[in-house]
């Protein structure tokens, strides 16, 4: 199974449904923090150009806020594609984006448990 197939399987998304309107990137609240934007994730996965995505910090900038999923006129669910690419990256050996030993310096007294749980779910396998 190649990377594209793996990502399609993890996401359950049919990228062919995309009509290239760009509404996902028009609606993304974290657009400016991303090198590759939601519509590019969909397009690049469809065209099999996945390596640049796997190496990009953009993987860790998606907020999973589902704005793109809610507003996509073709029901493509870009957030699920981004999540699948991220999983494909962090499931590799030693590829965890956040390591437990680095966490203490990043938290403060108010940090909710929920944040740590979410971060480990999103950034580590």
């Amino acid at each position: 199974m190649d990377r594209k197939e793996e990502i399609l399987l993890i996401s359950g998304v049919n990228v062919r449904k995309c009509m290239r309107c760009g509404k996902c990137s028009g609606t993304c609240p974290n657009y400016d923090e991303m090198e590759y934007h939601p519509h590019q994730f969909v397009y690049m996965v469809e065209s099999g150009n996945i390596e640049p995505l796997l190496k990009s910090e953009s993987l860790y900038k998606c907020l999973s806020c589902f704005a793109c999923v809610e507003r996509c006129p073709r029901d493509v669910e870009p957030a699920k594609i981004i999540e699948a690419v991220r999983l494909s990256a962090i499931r590799q050996k030693g590829a965890n984006h956040i390591k437990a030993e680095n966490v203490p310096e990043l938290i403060d007294e108010d940090t909710p448990q929920q944040l740590l749980m979410s971060v480990f779910r999103k950034y580590s396998k």
């Binding site: 290239r20 760009g22 509404k23 996902c24 990137s25 028009g26 609606t27 993304c28 657009y31 400016d32 934007h37 519509h39 590019q40």
Partner: peptide, 11 residues
């Protein structure tokens, strides 16, 4: 109004 400009790849 927030939207995408796909040609310049900008929001």
């Amino acid at each position: 109004v927030q939207g995408s400009d796909l040609i310049s790849n900008e929001q």
